[in-house]
Amino acid sequence: MQGDREKGLEARDVGFRYGKNGSWILKGVNLTVRPGERVGLTGPSGCGKSTLAKILAGYESPLEGEVLYDGSPLPEKGYCPVQMIYQNPEQAVNPRWKMEGILCEGWTPDAELLRDMGIEREWLKRWPAELSGGELQRFLIARVLGPETKFLICDEISTMLDVITQAQVWETLLRAADRQRLGMLVVTHSTALAKRVCTRIVSLQEINQS
């Protein structure tokens, strides 16, 4: 069945808790991100922003409700059109892979993108532990900007970058978002940043019934 792209990425009545007896972190959460839209998600630490982000990216299954992409469940095989970038880059890489392998796992970024992201050719031959936090994060952003990516889930992705690199990286991200009509969920604690890069801002506490 051909899906309807304009439906976007949808969390429907999502409920989640860790473990059998844990308290509900998310309950009855409804949120839709449409193509071309950049939704800022705010809320205090531990309120479940990252959990919701992981559920939307398909890394965690909701215990209640469902996540729909174009009206159907996320594909289980092949390249996932919904990609996620984490806050702590060192936790998102395999320490036994060189940077080249990590970068080109899903697609092969062109030289222009590497230049825009300020990635040095020589870094490709290094191990993740041989790069600074900010250098590593630039790889993890470039690696998900492939043409098959339709939605990007960004969980505090620029807190490890200096402010100039942060502005550069967002410039590149917004350009890619325009070009590919990406939908984005942007988790950030910085209201100033959310105002700059998002098309609308949602407070998780307001849409969460837990």
């Binding site: 550069q168 410039e171 100033a192």
Partner: peptide, 13 residues
């Protein structure tokens, strides 16, 4: 340049 790049200022890298 650092101050100019802040999102609450110009956000200009």
């Amino acid at each position: 340049a650092f101050l100019e790049a802040l999102p609450q200022n110009e956000f200009c890298p």
